[in-house]
Computed example of a mutant assay.
Amino acid sequence: MTNDRTPHWLVQLRFILLCSPVGIVLALILAPWAIFVLPAFFGTLFVFWQASRLFTNGFVKLFDPEGHEAIRRSGGDPFYDSIGVPLNNDSEQVRVTGRKPNTNCPGCHQPVLVKANKPFRCPQCDAHWHENNWWRWTGSKWIVLKMGR
Rank of each mutant, 00 (worst) to 15 (best):
V112A: 04
W129P: 03
V112K: 01
K115A: 12
C122D: 09
V112N: 03
T103D: 04
P119L: 10
P111H: 09
C125H: 06
T138R: 01
H128V: 15
E131R: 13
Q110V: 13
C125T: 03
G107V: 05
N117T: 15
K118P: 01
W137M: 03
R121Y: 02
A116P: 02
R136L: 10
Q110S: 13
K118T: 14
C125K: 00
W129V: 08
P123V: 04
N102T: 10
K118S: 08
C108T: 07
K118F: 05
V112M: 04
C122R: 01
H128S: 12
N104G: 02
C122V: 06
C105Y: 01
G139R: 02
H109L: 14
C108D: 09
F120M: 11
P106N: 03
K115T: 11
N117K: 15
C105K: 02
H109E: 12
K115N: 07
C122F: 05
P123M: 00
C105H: 03
N102S: 11
D126A: 15
A116T: 15
P123K: 02
Q124I: 13
H128N: 04
A116L: 14
A116D: 14
C125N: 01
V114R: 07
P119K: 13
R136Q: 11
T103P: 11
G139E: 05
P119Q: 14
N133Q: 12
K115Y: 06
R136P: 00
Q124M: 07
P119N: 13
P106G: 10
A116G: 10
P123I: 01
N132P: 03
W129C: 05
C125P: 00
P123C: 04
R99F: 12
N117F: 15
W135R: 12
T138Q: 06
P106V: 04
P101E: 07
G107F: 01
H130D: 06
C105T: 02
R136S: 02
C105G: 02
N104R: 10
K118L: 08
Q124V: 15
G107N: 11
C122N: 04
C108I: 09
V112C: 10
P101D: 08
L113A: 12
R99L: 13
R121D: 03
W129G: 06
T138L: 02
G139L: 08
C122S: 08
N133L: 04
W134V: 00
N132E: 07
W134N: 00
A116M: 05
E131F: 07
A127I: 00
C105W: 00
E131H: 07
Q124C: 14
T103M: 05
K100I: 12
W137E: 04
P101Q: 04
R136G: 00
W137T: 03
P119M: 13
G107R: 08
D126N: 13
W129Y: 15
T138N: 03
N117L: 11
A127T: 03
V114H: 13
W137V: 06
H109Q: 14
N133A: 10
Q110Y: 02
N117D: 15
L113V: 08
F120V: 11
Q124T: 14
K115I: 13
A127D: 04
